[in-house]
Amino acid sequence: MAHEHKLEIFQGLVKFKSNTQKIWGVLLFLTIVTAIEVVLGIYKPDVLATAWMTPFEGGFLATLGNIIFSGFIYMKPLNLIFILLTIVKAYYITWDFMHMRDETKALRRMVVWTAVFLICYLIFILLQEGGYVFDVYNTDDALIKNDF
């Protein structure tokens, strides 16, 4: 039963001698990432509490810019970091623990691209709608009141 494993992670920066060693290496990496998340979550540095960029004002290009840089404009840097670190963790769990790295390209794309596309679409639709409902509830002439 010769099972081939690709033993390189970080684009070949780290190469492990055996599959077992790679597993422990990935565990160490995931633990460090989780520790960073927890420390940031407890201390919540003030520097990371306000968005790095202010929205662009103006015409079509400004709107386009706001969409492209939406992660930096509308999101607290802290939350952006959390989400990025989560995706990093998800990548290493899928690629090394679930051995996605060793599957054929076609299987990998079938699974990953389908899920990523549909999830991004769903998140975009629902969050957009949620923000819209918030605006409806909170304009000056809103017909709904809940401050009693």
Binding site: I123, L126, L127, E129, G130, G131, V133, F134, Y137
Partner: peptide, 8 residues
């Protein structure tokens, strides 16, 4: 996320 954005 939807509900949270609704009552952000």
């Amino acid at each position: 996320g939807f509900s949270r954005f609704k009552f952000i």
